[in-house]
Design a protein around this nucleic acid. Structure first.
Length: 299
DNA sequence: GCCAGCCTGTTG
DNA sequence: CAACAGGCTGGC
């Protein structure tokens, strides 16, 4: 579901609500969603010190450990001020766990008591909670030691964040050279080349840069790649400013929708008129993904 | 690289 | 009923 602008919007919406809060309890209802939660050590009792993002990964900083969150396609992270199923539980946690050693039984909480597709729940000592909901179960949570991010393959292999000033046109030119035969859209989607771009923003950026998504990356001039780099960052910034793209499931940490869908030029617009030339937008498959572009404006 | 696979829900 | 969906992984 979410790409960089959506994850960043979620991060911004949650940060002021959870930072400084102490985790009272962690519940998981779908084991395969968690990579290494054999122990709750590092989670319960920890205080949220920050919430950062790299590409599409969210990182909740918990002192000695970091909770890594990837929402994949349908994952949502929702702040809950008061959850019906939690009545009384936070109070019991506060009074019973304050000075207890770990390993004590948690108050019972069943998935049936929570909204559908709830995969995990982090309850804070003030009774508020963070709920991880994911229809397709593609999303992943992982607890990592704070001093060793390479403990996760996905994280350690990421390229520079697409919104970071560190990511330069030269970086894009180098990657295009390195993957000369790959379609340029495929290069934009490679998270180890540059982190954060997904299907929506790849199509929208290529449209605005006037480049065909299926053009081999090695056959695009440095000048056009420089333009593409500029456009990608402008599109991502604009999308963050509008709170992301909500055409289907995506909502921020408070359940609110984004507005970038109002500015989509080609994504999900097949057979509709190109906003620039009026020719119909075409849909093809590139890099294994549905791809929309204007055959008249993009070369 | 490409492509199936992972899942469930929605749409044509 | 089949096709498709905002992503990533692992096996050719």
């Amino acid at each position: 579901m979410p790409e960089l602008p959506e994850v960043e919007t979620i991060r911004r919406s949650l940060l002021p609500l959870i930072s400084g809060k102490r985790i009272a309890a962690f519940y998981s209802f779908t084991p395969e969603v968690f990579s290494n939660f054999s122990t709750r050590a590092g989670l319960e009792g920890a205080v949220v010190q920050g919430l950062s993002r790299h590409g599409k990964y969210l990182l909740a900083e918990l002192g000695d450990s970091v909770l890594m969150i990837h929402l994949r396609m349908t994952g949502k992270l929702l702040y809950e001020d008061q959850l019906p199923g939690l009545d009384g539980i936070s109070e019991r946690l506060r009074t019973s766990r304050a000075n207890e050693p770990s390993g004590m039984a948690l108050p019972c909480l069943r998935a049936e008591d929570l909204p559908p597709h709830t995969r995990a729940l982090i309850v804070f000592t003030d009774g508020s909670a963070l709920r991880f909901q994911d229809i397709r179960r593609f999303g992943r949570l992982k607890l990592l030691p704070a001093d060793d991010f390479s403990a996760d393959r996905g994280l350690s292999g990421l390229g520079k964040d697409a919104l970071s000033p560190d990511w330069t046109a030269e970086d894009l030119i180098r990657e295009a050279k390195h993957h000369a035969k790959a379609p340029i859209k495929g290069v934009l989607l490679m998270q180890d080349a540059v982190a954060g771009i997904g299907n929506i923003y790849a199509d929208e950026s290529l449209f605005r840069a006037g480049i065909r998504p299926d053009r081999p990356a090695g056959r695009i001039s440095a000048a056009r790649l420089t333009r593409l780099h500029e456009v990608v960052q402008a599109v991502l910034e604009r999308a963050v400013g509008l709170g992301g793209t909500s055409f289907r499931d995506y909502v921020n940490g408070l359940g609110g929708k984004g507005h970038f869908q109002l500015e989509l030029a080609v994504y999900q617009k097949e057979n509709q008129a190109c906003p620039v030339c009026g020719q119909p937008i075409r849909k093809i498959e590139t890099a294994g993904r549905g791809t929309r572009f204007c055959p008249h404006c993009q070369h």
